[in-house]
């Protein structure tokens, strides 16, 4: 590993750790007083959205294709992990919270990733509009299935899921998830996927197995949607299939687009702001989606690349800019 890069990684890691202690300072002291648990809830939901939106951006931004059924993947992660942790509890197996939480995350991620492969292999033969429609169709099929299966509540609310998503855990998983996705994007895999987005015919003429890299990216994306779903299930503790509707998928897409297709930084900021803002302004709730949609139309007309375009934040980059040593953020890994 080049030395300069190593230092950059360490600085970024330090930033993540500092932020963690900042959160601990805010939440574990009496700083916030009575609103502490309320704010904490907003932060947890925001972090869950961050994982979800970054995963969606892998498909929408980097691969340049549409998944309009990403909430469907989230629901698979949520239900599969909830079923497993509830079964473990019912069987009288007492595990430490952290272990149970990790089991939920791994189960949610892997099962959703498997579903991603199953959906991706046939669906990714299509592109553009048709792929978009097919992803909606798959999400709807998943929703109908969860409504019909007894094990997932048979159309009623599935409740009594253990509350495991404590903000420490969620923070660490979110940080790891975003980091892994960043590494994925800035590797030969991400490079191939971007080439496919630019021109899939030229990509295959350069020896790239287009289907393979598309399915791979789709699967990675599904994995993290599942992770996000698992965290969600174990925070909310009750699930209903109608929650994971087309509109929910559209909400995540809005966050991706506003943040910037092709920028994970944009996704993090977009998800954090758009999921925290309506909570913070309760009276604004009824108008939330209305305003989102208006903003979305305006962004499409005036700045289709979103707020961040393809800019990526990096702490060392910003430090260098601040100290005037080098301009620009992290342009390339």
């Amino acid at each position: 590993m080049p030395k300069a890069r190593k230092i950059d990684y360490i600085i970024n890691l330090a930033g993540v750790i500092v932020l963690f202690f900042l959160l601990m300072f805010i939440f574990d002291t009496e700083l916030l007083g009575r609103v502490r648990s309320y704010i904490q809830g907003i932060v947890i939901i925001a972090m869950i959205s961050i994982v979800m939106v970054c995963s969606l951006n892998l498909i929408t931004g980097f691969m340049g294709e549409f998944s309009l059924g990403h909430a469907g993947f989230m629901s698979i992660g949520a239900y599969s992990s909830a079923v497993v942790t509830m079964a473990l509890e019912n069987a009288g197996i007492i595990l430490p919270d952290l272990l149970l939480f990790l089991i939920a995350i791994v189960i949610g991620g892997i099962i959703t990733a498997l579903m991603g492969v199953l959906v991706g292999i046939p669906a990714l033969r299509l592109r553009g509009d048709y792929l978009a429609i097919v992803t909606i169709a798959f999400a709807e099929i998943i929703r109908v299935a969860f409504t019909n299966f007894q094990i997932t509540g048979g159309g009623k609310t599935l409740s009594g899921i253990p509350k495991l998503s404590d903000y420490h855990y969620v923070y660490v998983i979110t940080a790891i998830s975003v980091c892994v996705m960043y590494m994925y994007v800035r590797s030969r895999f991400g490079r191939c996927v971007r080439a496919i987005r630019e021109d899939y015919i030229a990509a295959s003429a350069s020896g790239i197995n287009v289907t393979y890299y598309k399915v791979m990216t789709f699967t990675v994306s599904a994995f993290f949607a599942g992770v996000s779903g698992a965290m969600y299930a174990h925070y909310i503790t009750s699930l209903i299939p109608t929650k994971f509707s087309f509109n929910y998928s559209a909400e995540f897409l809005t966050m991706v687009i506003l943040g910037g297709t092709g920028s994970l930084t944009g996704s993090v900021v977009g998800a954090a702001v758009l999921s925290a803002l309506p909570e913070a302004l309760r009276s604004f709730q009824a108008y939330r989606m209305l305003i989102y949609s208006v903003v979305l139309v305006l962004v499409m007309i005036f700045k289709p690349s979103g707020l961040f375009g393809s800019y990526e934040f990096s702490l060392p980059g910003v430090l260098r800019t601040l100290t005037g040593r080098k301009k620009g953020g992290a342009k390339d890994e």
Binding site: G64, F66, L68, G128, D129, A132, N247, A250, L253, T254, I257, Y287, M289, L290, Y292, S293, V294, L296, V297, M300, I301, P304
Partner: peptide, 16 residues
């Protein structure tokens, strides 16, 4: 891509 997102946004707009 832009057209599809715009259409989606208009759908959301009308519904909301």
């Amino acid at each position: 891509m832009t057209a599809l997102i715009t259409a989606l946004a208009m759908s959301l707009l009308l519904e909301n």
